[in-house]
Amino acid sequence: MNEIKTKVQYVDIDTDMAGQRIDNFMRNQLKNVPKSLIYRIIRKGEVRVNKKRIKAEYKLQAGDIVRVPPVKLEETEQKEVPNTKLNKVAELESCIIYEDDHMLILNKPSGTAVHGGSGLKFGAIEALRALRPEARFLELVHRIDRDTSGILLVAKKRSALRHLQAQFREKTVQKYYFALVLGQWKSSCRVVNAPLLKNEVNSIVRVNPNGKASETRFKIIEKFVDATLIQASPITGRTHQIRVHTQYTGHPIAWDDRYGDRRFDAYTGKVGLDRLFLHAANIKFAHPATEEKMDISAPMEAKLEKVLQKLRT
């Protein structure tokens, strides 16, 4: 089996890269390299900072010069880089709804995972890196489900990543989703507080008193004969939170393959729906550099709008 050897690199650490551990820095520099190999080359002293050996927990400082050593990899270990000529990759360029020097905001299509793995060659973040080969840093700020469409924040600087993730932790980010749910949602149901527990084997999430505290706020947007378009705002950020909380109230989301109702899927399929009707439509947060209040909206795809038009008639 053929081997590929990378070239030695010397990276100047600026203020944006400072503060992170050397092991995490190396994992970002050598994205296709197994974690065990990264720790081995650090332990053996092949990774140097200012020409000196360091330990894995060393925190980088502005002005440091890091030697990234050459590593040998079998060709099979090399991850396939997304081809920017592929339709699915190229179309992401038109899905960028905001971009500056600090961040990028994507209106992610349904069916596109946020990152590769679990049999997927690539996701949105790998595709964006292929589309922006000159970008030194591109990292996901948060995640949304593969079948959910809408707003996805990507940081272009480490300082922006830290600032934005801090806002998510402190719950100062406001997120609003549109969801089409089964039946008539009651106007009195404005908040669902129900702890969620994730099964680590199959990733199914259930309401469980032993789970993590979870809160979602709801608002009716439009009522149809057998369905309701609602706005959902998750206060906490648990896996599948909106999907499970709507199921818990007796109103699962249309075309939800894990928590849905097949009869509802058949009903909405007649008006042209063939995907999960959950869309991250709006987000409000502070800009990571200027502190300016950002209010970003992402339009629903035409298919979802047509479904709503047909439900009205």
Rank of each mutant, 00 (worst) to 15 (best):
A90V: 01
K198F: 00
S203T: 06
Y176F: 13
D101L: 04
I151V: 13
G117A: 06
R129S: 11
R146E: 07
R162H: 11
L153Q: 07
L128M: 12
I125H: 05
L161F: 02
Y177D: 00
K175N: 01
V89R: 07
S118P: 01
F122M: 06
L152E: 09
D145S: 06
I151C: 07
L106W: 09
Q78S: 02
R132F: 15
A166L: 12
L131C: 08
N199P: 06
T84C: 10
R143Y: 08
R190C: 08
F168V: 14
R158W: 08
T148S: 14
T84L: 09
G183R: 11
P133Q: 10
E80V: 15
E75M: 08
Y176E: 05
K121A: 14
R158D: 01
T148F: 05
F168H: 01
A155R: 05
V114H: 09
S94A: 13
S203E: 15
L86Q: 15
H102R: 03
K198S: 00
T76C: 00
H163K: 13
L92M: 11
P209K: 04
P109E: 02
H142Q: 07
V201Q: 12
Y177A: 13
E139A: 14
N199H: 10
P133N: 12
N107Q: 13
K72H: 02
A130F: 11
S203N: 12
T172M: 02
L138N: 04
G116Y: 11
A135M: 12
D101C: 02
G150I: 05
R162M: 13
G123R: 05
A160N: 07
E200Q: 10
S159M: 12
L92G: 09
I105S: 08
N208Y: 00
I125F: 05
R158Q: 15
P209N: 01
P109S: 05
L152H: 08
E170I: 00
A135S: 15
M103P: 07
V81L: 10
V192A: 06
S203F: 15
L131H: 10
K156H: 05
K171G: 05
N83P: 02
R206F: 04
N202R: 02
E75G: 15
E200V: 08
D101W: 01
L138Y: 11
A135I: 07
E134I: 02
R146A: 11
F168K: 06
S94K: 15
F168G: 06
C189E: 12
N199S: 10
Q78P: 00
L182V: 02
E200F: 00
F168C: 03
K186W: 00
L197Y: 12
E93R: 15
P133R: 05
D101G: 07
V201K: 14
K72D: 00
D100Q: 06
A155T: 09
V173F: 02
L120R: 12
A135V: 09
P195T: 03
A124K: 01
